[in-house]
Simulated assay, not measured.
Amino acid sequence: MAISLNQVILLGNVGKKPEIRVFQDGGLMADFSLATTYSYKPKGKDEYVDVVDWHRVRAYQNVAKTIESYVDKGHKIQVIGQVKNNNYEDKNGVKQYGYYILAERVILLEKSGAKSEPQPQNVENPESMAFNDVPDIPF
């Protein structure tokens, strides 16, 4: 039995305001770019050089809702997820290759308020809510 793992952890800054899409079935998707930076000192030089890598990040459902409410351009965040292939044929029949990061978890690293007022949840019968619907207690 082969064992494998596809896990990515990125810590960086959001490049532009996340694009939020709502699907016909009510599903939610957030799409944004994330910049990560590393530095190195070239041989024979006295100064470090910064290199920026850009990553396309997508999130769905609850993670997308968090991004929609709290993440904006420039925010420092940590993304934990998987690398996903985004290969397709363009309209000319040429194969295009790419990838994106499927965010399974987003950690906000800067204190910032909600971008908009949270919308009240529509719960018809609160007693029928499952125990799993209660948010985690932070202690």
Rank of each mutant, 00 (worst) to 15 (best):
G44A: 03
V51Q: 12
V123R: 09
I107Y: 08
K84A: 15
Y100H: 12
L34C: 00
N87A: 11
Q121N: 14
I77L: 09
I3N: 14
K76A: 09
T66G: 10
Y100C: 02
K111L: 06
A35V: 00
V52Y: 09
I80Y: 00
T37G: 00
N85R: 10
Y88N: 03
V71N: 09
P126I: 01
E124Y: 05
D53N: 11
L34V: 01
S39G: 00
L108D: 05
P120R: 07
R56E: 13
V63L: 04
K76L: 07
Q96E: 10
D136A: 13
Q121E: 15
V71R: 09
N87G: 13
Y70A: 08
G93Q: 10
Q7I: 07
D25G: 06
P18W: 08
K16E: 12
K111F: 09
I67E: 01
N92A: 15
I20Q: 03
E127L: 07
E104C: 03
D90C: 11
Q96L: 02
P18G: 08
A103F: 06
V49N: 04
R56I: 08
V134G: 01
N132H: 13
P138R: 06
D25S: 11
S112W: 02
K65E: 14
M29G: 03
G44C: 03
I101W: 06
R56C: 12
R21D: 03
K95I: 06
V14L: 01
V51H: 07
Y99Q: 11
G44Y: 02
F23C: 06
L28N: 02
Y100Q: 02
A103C: 03
G74P: 10
M129A: 12
D46T: 14
E127K: 12
E110V: 01
V14R: 01
E110T: 02
W54M: 14
K84L: 14
A35E: 01
E19N: 12
Y99W: 09
E117P: 04
Q24D: 15
D53C: 01
D72K: 13
S116M: 11
N92D: 15
Y60Q: 10
S69D: 06
M1K: 07
N132S: 15
Q121C: 10
P18R: 07
Y100S: 04
W54T: 14
Q96S: 04
K111Q: 11
Y60T: 12
I101D: 02
E124I: 06
V57R: 04
P118A: 06
F131N: 13
V51E: 14
N87K: 10
D53T: 02
T37F: 00
N122D: 15
D133G: 02
K41W: 00
D31M: 11
I9T: 12
P135A: 09
I101Y: 05
K65Q: 12
Y100L: 06
A35Y: 05
L108T: 04
V51L: 08
D72I: 06
L108A: 03
